[in-house]
Structures are given as C-alpha cells and as structure tokens.
C-alpha cells in the first residue's frame, strides 16, 4: 500500500498562509489504512488548525471532509461542494490524490499536508516497511521474492556488499535501526529453495529507464478502454 507521513505543523501553516476558508481533505483509502490521512486524521488536523487560528485571531474557518478515494475523479465529485466553497484545500491524500484534486478543481489552491514516502507492507500494527520501488523492471523472481532495489540500501543487483554484518545492513542510524541486509535474506531464502545458483550468476545492470529515470510513466490497457 501507499504510505505517507504528516508534515510538520509549521510547514502546513506556512502552506496555508492567510487563507480564510480552509478545507482539510482526507482520503479513506491507503492513507487512512496507514493512520495518516483518513477522515479521522483530517478531523484532528482541522481541530489543530482551528485551535491555532483561534489563538492567532486570524478568523480562519476550518472544515474537514474525506473522499473515498481522492485519486479518482468520481469520488471527488462527492465532495465537490465543499471544495468549491474553500479558499484552499489542505489534502491529506497521497501524492496521487493531491494531484488528482488539484487537476480536477483547477485552479483551486491545493496543498499537501503529508509527505508520501513509500510502498510499504504493514509488518505489524502501526509499523510499515518499504517493499517496492515501482521501478518498472521487477527482479524478485530471481531474488527469492525479496526486492533488492528498495530493501538493499545501495540497490545492488549483486549483493551483499562488504557492509553486511550478522544479517544487518551497514546503514544503521537511530531512525533506521536494524535494517535487515536484503541480500543476506535473499541468500538464505534461495538456499532454502535450493536455488543458490541464481545468486552465483552475475546480474546485469538494471534498466533504470523503466523507472522514473525514463521520464513520467504511462500505462494504457487498450483492451479495456471505453469505446
């Protein structure tokens, strides 16, 4: 799923500026599941903004709402009245939802209240770990179902590097303690599968043009297009 983290409050305040009618718009899909930008969190941010506005005497009015999926226009239709009435929309959706909102209601001012950060797996309640980089050239069929692009700190195609120690990556900071060495995991799982030879052969350089290095990507399903 797509995960996001809320921006620092001061940054949101700076984006809001002196706008008077503020709509905090959550999204009830991915960002709600990761407890960052669903309706509940939109209500909390709206309350915070009101408490701040009250103290500062700005007279700003803050409301909240949420779209079922902010990335799809038909769901945006359902909150269109509230959006039209606002001077600014503070979106708590992922980067896709925020842009979808900005595009649908152009030139309405739409700003993000979250930083979209990864495609993560919920490891346990309230803990997400990055699992996919959407690189457009999946290699995990040969790496035991473990992605070296985002799970190896150096995106090695032929790991592990010399910094792998006791199954842990050399990159260990207070914020990122105990990162598992992806290539150690790959080696162990390939052994368990009896497919070590996949790690003994040299993997060629990755085709990064299939990821964002190749420019914005586009996907069309001709057979499914409406006629």
């Amino acid at each position: 799923m797509i995960t996001a983290e809320r921006k620092p409050f001061d940054e949101i305040l700076a984006l809001v500026g002196d706008k008077k009618k503020i709509l905090v718009a959550g999204c009830d899909t991915c960002v709600a599941i990761c407890l960052t930008g669903g309706e509940k969190e939109a209500e909390v941010l709206a309350s915070e903004l009101r408490i701040k506005a009250e103290q500062d005497g700005t007279g700003a009015e803050v409301e909240h709402t949420a779209a079922i999926r902010q990335c799809e226009w038909e769901y945006l239709d359902m909150i269109a009245d509230k959006v039209e009435a606002a001077d600014i929309v503070v979106s708590m959706a992922c980067g896709i939802g925020i842009q979808s909102m900005a595009e649908k209601f152009e030139p309405k001012l739409v700003v993000p209240a979250v930083d979209t950060n990864m495609l993560g797996m919920p490891q346990e309640h309230a803990l997400w770990l990055e699992r996919c980089g959407a690189c457009g050239d999946c290699v995990i069929g040969e790496t035991a179902g473990i992605c070296p692009v985002v799970r190896c700190s150096k995106s090695l195609m032929n790991g592990p590097c010399g910094g792998s120690h006791d199954g842990k990556c050399e990159v260990t900071t207070p914020e990122k303690e105990d990162i598992e060495c992806a290539w150690h995991l790959i080696w162990e799982r390939l052994k368990a599968q009896g497919r070590e030879e996949l790690m003994i052969k040299n993997r060629p350089p990755k085709k990064w043009n299939l990821s964002s290095s190749g420019g914005p990507r586009k996907m069309v399903r001709e057979e499914a297009k409406l006629v």
């Binding site: 509940k40 909390v44 309350s47 009101r50 009250e54």
Partner: peptide, 11 residues
C-alpha cells in the same frame, strides 16, 4: 478515548 476527543475539549 480518541485523540480528537481530547482536542475537541481543548478547542
């Protein structure tokens, strides 16, 4: 008790 309940009381 949720976060919003405490905030609303302060608000």
């Amino acid at each position: 008790l949720e976060v919003i309940h405490l905030l609303k009381a302060i608000e």
